[in-house]
Design a protein around this nucleic acid. Structure first.
Lengths: 349, 349
DNA sequence: TCGACGCATGTTAGCGCTAACACAAGTGCG
DNA sequence: CGCACTTGTGTTAGCGCTAACATGCGTCGA
């Protein structure tokens, strides 16, 4: 038998040009049979299958993704459009997504947008489509991005993650409103007459959702709704707002509790309050949002709303898989959890 | 002339099956001419080129990446193997990489390893090779990962970023030793007799490099080299070490300056020192590493060594492009910078 | 006993693109 | 004025794989 004629590259690891027919030759079958084995088709004799698998293992063969993508139209890749991966949340979500995608046999291709701009978004999605991705996951939460998404109609499933705009598409979100209400309820429960809110930037849907939750909970409790404050997610804006609030307190305004849109701003805010001679939580209670790993080590340790970002990513992939399998899907929500630490306390009698 | 016969999908955005010959038909040329225009070949008449470009624009055509990859063997994609993207540094580097890659017309495909294990690393690189990536960038710094890399010999350029093992391959790093020496020199310059060091985990090459820098600088200054302490990069381990050091100080040990392997551990450490009634920088000066965005808002604001992670990513791509262009490359270093804030001060007289 | 059927496998076509060659028309030079 | 050479364009082959059809053989019910 001329089965072993493929003896040119036995355990090759330097020059790779292994193709399916190399494996076929070694196993003494046709390339199609190798293809069947690789793809798990049922009608292959057990012995043949084994022989082919051995040949694959011995040669270290991997099917060429491009060829496969060309003929099937699928590259077993998911495209991710995201922003601000330097922030804790998006980074964690990325990890969850990649892990779940890989577990399901998909690769992850990423595009990081500078701003959630229409053109960038469209371009990123177009690129992914040209790459024959099987699905696109969008992880951004600006109004612009949502607008851009509405105009888009890619020929592959598109799922949104943490968009704050559940109506748009199949979406997974952490319940932003629910989280905000948790925070506000906690503070009101401690006896605070009302709760101020330092929100994220106006373009952010997530920020807006948290504002809604904050307002609802206040209204539900019959508490007055103070003027809304805006930051940019970064510590510096929290710091500036802290100074501002301290000034207002000196002016006699009744500020005893602040719900801050994320942990980083909460950090800046608490530092500013300290600098102004105010005690947290003695004078002002502070609640953050996210529960970053550093939060327990802020001074004082930050009470915050935990979002399970990695789970968000995982569910995003689940949603993708469901869509690809043709199953119909409902918007999904990961519930937020309030983590009480030292930055909140009863209102000073 | 039957130039306009491709009138089926004029401004299509729903069902996409646009291929090169659609464009060719619309422009009244052969598909090869379209290919030439798309790829910028010189021998195309200006008028023809323009006509084709108009057809492309009108139809919204994008060449199919898979088909291109199949024939050229290049997918204009860079594969990134990375770890711990939830940490500030790797996340920033990812951003820098993606941005630079996209600017150069490359996509970025990512694999995030749970641990820098041999099998995982090999698997990730193999997957990338099967995907016809043009190059692989490895961003991890464990000994295991470096070992795995040594065994690997992928048929595409492989560049390492921040590996702490410059000898292995073309590499870009932030000067870890230089950064550590900066920190130690700063503290010694403030009059501290010696500097303790809370290092990152033992498996980390970066951590080891910083240890080397710390030790060298101490030896060069003729200062005693205290026992090395190890953490795991996270705030909790900094906190535990802070308690430990406080105990030692109570026991009479001479600890007035600590150089900590990253900012997160420095945060935990400072908090523990406070809890134990010690003042920073009054009793103990602390220097971190990384300069995370929160560092200016720690209590006290953290003196730290800034690494330009995004620049690292950008240079990584530069190195890739250089390799692809056949240019030979030297290991590259991004210089670290000491940022002095409030956590360091002169030794208490 | 024989045709219908199922199973294991082989053969062929073609996914959308680029590379290599083919060819017609124009250009320059001895 | 013809030959080499350039320029613009078309035609053909084939990248590595999967889908669809073809084939050959054993099994079973009528």
């Amino acid at each position: 038998m001329s089965t072993e004629t493929a003896g040119t590259a036995p355990a090759g690891h330097a020059t790779r040009a292994l193709v399916m027919s190399d494996v076929a030759a070694r196993a003494g079958v046709s390339h199609q049979t190798v293809s069947r084995v690789v793809n798990g088709h049922p009608n292959v004799a057990a012995m043949t299958r084994e022989r082919v698998q051995r040949a694959i293992a011995e040669l270290g063969y991997r099917p060429n993704t491009a060829a496969r993508a060309l003929v099937t139209g699928s590259s077993r890749t998911i495209g991710l459009v995201t922003i601000n991966v330097n922030q804790y949340g998006p980074a964690q979500t990325l990890i969850g997504l990649e892990e779940a995608a890989r577990a399901a046999g998909y690769s992850l291709s990423v595009a990081i947008l500078d701003a959630g701009e229409f053109a960038d978004m469209r371009d990123a999605v177009d690129r992914f489509v040209a790459q024959s991705v099987d699905a696109v996951v969008v992880h951004t939460a600006s109004f612009q991005a949502v607008e851009a998404l509405r105009e888009l109609d890619p020929p592959v499933p598109l799922v949104a993650v943490q968009m704050g705009a559940e109506e748009v598409r199949p979406t997974v979100t952490v319940g932003q409103e629910a989280g905000a209400r948790l925070a506000v309820a906690h503070l009101l429960g401690l006896g605070h007459r009302t709760v101020h809110h330092l929100a994220g930037p106006a373009y952010s849907l997530e920020a807006q959702r948290r504002v809604q939750g904050w307002r609802c909970e206040l209204l539900a409790a019959g508490a007055p709704v103070p003027e809304l404050l805006h930051g940019d997610w970064w510590p510096g804006s929290g710091h500036r707002t802290g100074r501002l609030l301290a000034q207002r307190i000196r002016d006699g305004e009744d500020v005893t509790a602040v719900f801050v849109g994320n942990d980083q701003m909460a950090l800046g805010l608490m530092v500013a309050l300290h600098e102004e001679g105010l005690d947290v939580p003695g004078d002002v209670s502070v609640v953050g949002f996210d529960d970053v790993p550093e939060a327990p080590y802020f001074s004082p340790p930050l009470t915050t709303v935990r979002q399970d970002f990695a789970e968000l990513g995982r569910r995003g992939v689940e949603l993708v898989l469901a869509k690809l399998a043709g199953r119909d899907t409902l918007p999904d929500q990961v519930p937020p959890v309030l983590v009480v630490r030292g930055s909140t306390g009863p209102v000073r009698g």
